[in-house]
């Protein structure tokens, strides 16, 4: 232990204590990524192929199913799926991170924030890798339509990744702490994520809600569909991030004028960051308050 580590500026048990363990975070993230791709036959190819295959199946099914067409549907679908998949896998892995490392926590002192944090960071890196699938898809479609489907707006996704990363951290800390005390949180959370997918407009678009709402209004009834749309747009952080992601990737290359639901306003970013930080503070607070009791339950 070097002199610098002795004079740690950060309070034991606080979130910022992680800064004393920067190298450990790096090691753990590198381990997760290395082990994922080591000695697997297809390695990285698989993590690109998998989303592409799912996208192809879903595109075929849903373009046949829905009457309301979405322009460039495969790209639209892939945007939603990648973002949601990140939030889902990151939080899901963070959930079990404390209980999985029980043996380590019983033997050495490490900032406990480290474990969910490393899982979420590894998932984030994975997410960036899997964007390769989206790039391939866009290249294919660029050839198909004889125009470049890339735009300088694409770089904006960095903002979305930051928002989703902070949000996933908060949710991950909360779930990891809960899972120590109640092991069935895992099953409950799986059920919740399944519902969450259907509420996040991944394979349908919000336009159908607005059309239905307008119809309901015309018929003189209460526009429930409209309320539902507002509910998703304002209270589902996952949809807020998906919408922004699409605004940077899918919307700029659409030709047939966008409907109002696809436009992103500055307020959307305020809302996205708002939810991210709210979730982050809730998660860190819950984790800090309960971390001293972890050892008694693992």
């Amino acid at each position: 232990m070097t002199a610098e580590q002795k004079k740690s500026k950060f309070k034991e048990g606080s979130f910022l204590e992680l800064l004393n363990y920067k190298d450990l975070l790096y090691q753990l993230v590198a381990r997760d990524i290395k082990l994922k791709y080591r000695r697997s036959f297809l390695g990285y190819v698989w993590s690109v192929l998998n989303p592409l295959l799912i996208m192809i199946i879903m595109s075929i099914v849903f373009t046949m199913l829905f009457t309301k067409k979405t322009e460039l549907f495969p790209i639209y679908l892939m945007c939603g799926r990648t973002v949601f998949e990140f939030i889902k896998t990151a939080t899901d892995k963070a959930l079990g991170s404390i209980t999985d490392n029980a043996s380590l926590l019983k033997k050495t002192y490490v900032s406990k924030f480290m474990f969910p944090m490393s899982k979420i960071t590894a998932s984030m890196v994975d997410f960036v890798f899997s964007l390769g699938a989206l790039v391939i898809l866009i290249v294919v479609y660029s050839f198909k339509y004889h125009r470049a489907l890339f735009s300088f707006w694409n770089f904006g996704i960095v903002i979305v990744i930051i928002e989703a990363y902070i949000f996933a951290m908060g949710l991950g800390f909360l779930l990891a702490a809960l899972n120590v005390f109640f092991r069935d949180i895992k099953y409950i959370y799986h059920a919740v994520t399944t519902m969450w997918i259907y509420c996040s407009a991944i394979f349908y678009n919000m336009g159908s809600f607005y059309d239905k709402g307008a119809k309901q209004l015309k018929a003189g009834g209460t526009p429930y569909a409209l309320y539902l749309a507002k509910l998703i747009e304002y209270f589902n952080p996952a949809y807020i991030y998906i919408k922004q992601f699409r605004a940077f990737v899918w919307a700029p290359v659409c030709r047939k004028g966008l409907e109002s639901w696809a436009y992103v306003h500055p307020t959307d970013f305020a809302l996205g960051f708002g939810y991210a930080f709210l979730m982050f503070f809730i998660g860190v607070f819950a984790f800090r308050k309960s971390q001293d009791k972890f050892i008694l339950y693992i």
């Binding site: 070097t2 580590q5 450990l24 790096y26 090691q27 753990l28």
Partner: peptide, 9 residues
């Protein structure tokens, strides 16, 4: 990995 867990850089 172990060195980092023990708090070394």
């Amino acid at each position: 990995l172990n060195g980092c867990i023990l708090g070394y850089s």
